[in-house]
Design a protein around this nucleic acid. Structure first.
Length: 482
DNA sequence: TGAAATGTTGGGGCG
DNA sequence: ACGCCCCAACATTTC
């Protein structure tokens, strides 16, 4: 009677799961184990809303498991110590898990493999987090891609893995054997700082429901609506993908199904643009896997020459959503309320922090990481380095968003601002993007006094834009003369 | 997955 | 009728 541990990390689902499928097809009993890793739980940047959401997600998974007479075994400790000990405790032959590619995960997992194999235990890892693993997408020259477009072409050309079909009959093996009926399990903690209104309930059922709803219709207009941050034109699946409550394979195949059913060329375009976002995710992992240092530092050392101002007062105002630029402040409110920000708004606030407030992207990266339910090193760092112009295929330094123009262009009626900054809800569209342009009489008329009801702009965009250009130019000069 | 500055064109008002 | 100017609309260049 062979037993295997299915070590869950960020694959909290019972469908289309490579490690689970492998374990269920290679053992008589599969014990699902989640380890509360002190290194992660104590990391300052992780003690935010995401942790609370993860814990609730573990509870959701536990109740999903209950349908098969199974339960999630939770332990606290260092995985490299805990897993060999647990194998001995329950008589398991080894551990199966899905690979992860962040620098910490790579280090942790190789320590676990070493510890298990030294004791003659099985350590089997599977490809699951991505549709194609980082090393699978080489260019003709055999080198990995630094630029997205050729990466995508090569990615498209590869044969795609099918989702893993896991039947209820297989899942019956998750039921704990009788001698382990009382196997101790630590209580799932409660997060200290949950998002007040998370963007969605965690769990696989909710993830699948959202995917179904999205591919039923919104996906066909994704290319037209994805940039309108005042509308719900996106799938908002990122937190679910983050924790593997749904798999990228499942998303991709659902999109292909939608594409086959698309009524016209425009609808197919919507599907393709959405798939393109899945590919960005894979591109970001591929970059991080190859440049692990980019999790903490500028990807290109040449950019270390940039002299960020890092004014603490500006940084605080940005973090607290009181910059006086409504779209920026609204996005911060959305983040703190829901643990999620629309992608367009992410780009706007990121550009504002780096290129208007002249703060190092790492301050923003860290803040996002604390509060985003989908906070993920590869994608978060990828996005920030893109905005700061320090990444591989990054925005050029002179691409500076005008927060007012962006707000007017992508949210003409100001719906996003009205939703997240109710104190401005009564302003007409004409003033809502830049309330400080109101005359004193207009401020009185609409009941919004700048300085009392809403802050004045913390900086002048025009001036800061010029400053940013000088800052980047100086860095370039310093680099070239060095 | 920018925006501002600069250049060009053409219509219309006007003397 | 003509030249001149203004400026919107669009294109191109620049950061």
């Amino acid at each position: 009677m062979t037993r295997l541990i299915w070590w869950l990390r960020r694959d909290l689902r019972l469908n289309d799961n490579a490690a689970l499928h492998y374990a269920l097809t290679h053992a008589e009993h599969v014990i699902p184990v989640f380890i509360l890793d002190a290194t992660l739980l104590n990391a300052e940047r992780l003690r935010g809303a995401r942790l609370a959401w993860l814990f609730d997600g573990l509870r959701a998974l536990d109740s999903d498991l209950a349908r098969y007479g199974a339960r999630l075994i939770v332990r606290e400790g260092a995985p490299a110590d805990m897993l060999p000990a647990l194998c001995a405790e329950i008589g398991a032959e080894g551990v199966v898990f899905n690979r992860d590619y962040s620098p910490y995960a790579v280090k942790r997992d190789s320590a676990v493999q070493k510890a298990l194999r030294e004791r003659g235990l099985l350590a089997h890892s599977c490809a699951d987090l991505l549709i194609h693993e980082p090393h699978e997408v080489p260019s003709k020259s055999g080198k990995p891609y630094d630029v997205y477009s050729p990466f995508r072409r090569a990615w498209e050309a590869l044969p795609k893995p099918e989702p893993y079909v896991i039947t209820d009959a297989l899942r019956a093996k998750l039921r704990l054997p009788d001698d382990l009926a009382h196997l101790p399990s630590a209580p799932i903690p409660t997060g200290a700082q949950p998002a007040p209104q998370p963007i969605g309930a965690p769990g696989e059922a909710e993830a699948l429901r959202r995917l179904d709803a999205f591919i039923a219709a919104p996906i066909y207009r994704y290319h037209e609506r994805r940039d309108l941050h005042g509308e719900d034109g996106t799938s908002a699946l990122s937190p679910y993908l983050r924790f593997g409550m749904i798999s990228a394979r499942t998303c991709y195949h659902a999109a292909l199904k939608a594409r086959a059913a698309a009524p016209d060329e425009s609808a197919r375009k919507g599907v393709d643009v959405w798939i393109s976002e899945l590919v960005w995710r894979e591109f970001n992992y591929q970059v991080l896997a190859r440049y692990p240092h980019s999790a903490r530092r500028n990807l290109r050392p040449a950019h270390d020459a940039i002299q960020w101002e890092d004014n603490p007062a500006y940084l605080a105002a940005w973090r607290e959503g009181r910059t006086g630029y409504p779209v920026v402040d609204a996005a911060i409110r959305q983040l703190l309320q829901t643990g999620w920000i629309h992608n367009r708004a992410r780009m706007i606030v990121a550009s504002f922090l780096c290129k208007d407030l002249l703060c190092d992207w790492r301050h923003g990266e860290r803040f996002f990481m604390q509060h985003l339910l989908d906070g993920d090193v590869a994608n978060n760092v990828g996005g920030w380095q893109w905005t700061a112009g320090t990444g591989t295929d990054a925005a050029p330094y002179f691409r500076i968003f005008n927060p007012i123009a962006q707000s007017e262009k992508f949210d003409p009626q100001g719906n996003y601002i009205r939703r997240w900054l109710p104190e401005l809800a009564n302003l007409p569209a004409k003033f809502i993007h830049a309330p400080f342009t109101m005359s004193a009489a207009e401020q009185r008329h609409f009941g919004v006094l700048i300085g009392r009801d809403y802050p004045p702009p913390i900086v002048d965009h025009e001036m800061q834009r010029e400053k940013a250009l000088r800052m980047y130019a100086a860095a370039r000069q310093k680099r070239d003369s060095a």
